[in-house]
Design a binder for these strands. Structure first.
Lengths: 241, 241
DNA sequence: AGCGACGTACCGACCGGTCGGTATCGTCAC
DNA sequence: GTGACGATACCGACCGGTCGGTACGTCGCT
C-alpha cells in the first residue's frame, strides 16, 4: 500500500528477515534502551549474525530510523483519513484522537523508543523524522483551529498549545500504562479524549476561575508555531557543532 | 522527611565541585544523552579530572540518580505546600499545577534527562526514584479526588487517569518548548492549567458528544491505581532477569 | 603527621562496523 | 537437463577505538 519502491537505493528492508530484525530491535530498544542494546544482542535474538543485519540495514541508526519512519507514516495516513472524513469538527477530532490513542497502545514499544532515543539519530535522519512529525502535528492543529473558527472550541488557548498538550499526554503513555493492568487500552483512550474535548469546551462565562479570556486567537497561534519551528531549527543548528 | 544522612555512606555530594559536576552533567546529558556523554567529557567540561568526580560520586549512574532525586524532592516539597494550603480544591489544584509547570520550565534539562534516561539506572536506584515519583503522583491525585468528592470535578474520569494525562503533557514539555520562542514559559503554564481545569469541569448534561456518563467513581479509581502499581512492580520484576 | 581532595596512569571489556568468504538460487546457452 | 555463472543472502572472525572504573601518587590544610 505505502509506496515501497521509492528512490534510488533502499530497495531493501522488505524481506521477512528484515521485518524480524526490526521487530526484535524494537522490543530490545524498548526494554533496555538503544545504546544499551548491542547489535550482537539484536542479531542473536533474531537467530542470525551481524552480517545478515548489515546486509539489510546500513547501520544501527538505520534500524532506529526505520522504526520511526514506519510509525509516523502509519499514524499520518490514519490521521488524514479521519480528518478528511465527514462529520462535524468535534466528531472528526474526537475520532482522530481516539484512533491515535488506540494505535499508540498497539505500538507502545515504538512509542517508548521514539521519545527515548530520538536524539541518537544522526542529524540528517533526525531532520527527516522531525519534518514528518511536524506535518502530523500541523494536520491535527488545523482540526483544532477549524473548531475554534467555528466557535465550537475555546479560543483563549492557542491551537498549537492544545496539540502539544494532548500529544504530550499521548506520548507519555508508554511510561505508565501496562497492558496487563486493570484498565483496558480503549478505556484509557476514551478517558483521554474526554479530557481533551472537555478542555476544549468554551469556558462558562459566569465562571469563577478564569479571569483573562480570549487573549489571542488562531492567527497568533499560527505565528507562534512558526516562531517555535524557527527556534527549533536554530537549536538544531547549534547542536550540530 | 528527606533524611540526608541515611545509610552508611553517601555523606558526599555537598561540595561546590560536586554541585558544578552535577550541573555540567545535567546539561550534557540533556544535550547528548546519558550514554553518549562520556565521563571524560563531564569532567573536562567542569575543569577537573575523573579522580575528582569519582571522589564525590560512586559511578556515572550516581550522577543520574542525584539529578532525579533532587528534582523529585523539590517538586514534592512544593506540591505539598500548595496542596496543604488554604483555599478551595480548585484553587489549590490550580496553584499546584501552575507551580509544577513553572518549576519544570526552570529545570527543562533535568526533565529531558529524566524521561530519556530513567531506564539506565540500576534496579535499586530506579526503584527508589519510582517510589518517590509515585508518592508525588498520589498526592496530586488526592487533590483531584477531593474535588471529585466535592462535586466540583467530573466523576466520569478516574482521578488517576487525570493525573497521568496532565503529567504526561507536563513531562513532554522539554521535547518541544524552546526558551527563546515566542511564548513565555509562564504563558504556557497558564494555558496548560486552563486545559486541565477545563477538562475537569463537570460535562454539560445536555451535551451531544458524551453518551456514557458517570461510569465509576473515585473508589474504582483508587482500586485501579493500586492494580496498576502492582502490575508495574511485576513488570519491573520480570525485567530484572 | 595525617587526612580529605584531587590528579595521573592505566586496565580490561566491549562495541559498531568491516571484510573475505560461502551457500543458495535464478537463468540462460547449448 | 545440465552445467556455467553472476547475484543475492548470509556467516563469523576480527579491528580500531572508546569507555567506565581503579590504583595510587601528591598537594595542602590543620
Amino acid at each position: 500500500m505505502a509506496g515501497e519502491s521509492a528512490g534510488t537505493e533502499a530497495r531493501q528492508r522488505t524481506g521477512a528477515l528484515a521485518e524480524r530484525l526490526l521487530a526484535v530491535a524494537t522490543r530490545l530498544f524498548a526494554e533496555k534502551g538503544f545504546e544499551a542494546t548491542s547489535v550482537q544482542e539484536i542479531v542473536e535474538s533474531a537467530g542470525v549474525t551481524k552480517g545478515a543485519m548489515y546486509h539489510y540495514f546500513a547501520s544501527k541508526d538505520d534500524l532506529l530510523f526505520e522504526i520511526y519512519h514506519r510509525l509516523l507514516m502509519m499514524q499520518t495516513r490514519r490521521l488524514e483519513q479521519f480528518a478528511d472524513s465527514k462529520g462535524t469538527v468535534g466528531e472528526r477530532l474526537r475520532a482522530a484522537a481516539v484512533d491515535v490513542l488506540d494505535t499508540s497502545f498497539l505500538h507502545l514499544d515504538e512509542l517508548t523508543v521514539f521519545f527515548r532515543s530520538m536524539h541518537m539519530l544522526p542529524q540528517e535522519k533526525r531532520k527527516t523524522v522531525r519534518a514528518e512529525r511536524r506535518r502530523y502535528h500541523e494536520r491535527f492543529r488545523a482540526l483544532v483551529e477549524e473548531g475554534q473558527a467555528a466557535g465550537i472550541f475555546r479560543r483563549d488557548v492557542p491551537a498549537d498549545i492544545v496539540v502539544q498538550f494532548f500529544f504530550g499526554a499521548v506520548h507519555q503513555l508508554s511510561t505508565w500504562y501496562r497492558p496487563n493492568g486493570q484498565l483496558a487500552a480503549h478505556e484509557v483512550s476514551e478517558y483521554y479524549v474526554d479530557l481533551l474535548m472537555g478542555g476544549l469546551e468554551v469556558p462558562r462565562p459566569a465562571g469563577d476561575a478564569n479571569t483573562d479570556t480570549d487573549t489571542n486567537a488562531d492567527t497568533d497561534a499560527k505565528a507562534d508555531a512558526e516562531a517555535e519551528a524557527k527556534a527549533d531549527a536554530d537549536a538544531e543548528a547549534e547542536r550540530a557543532s
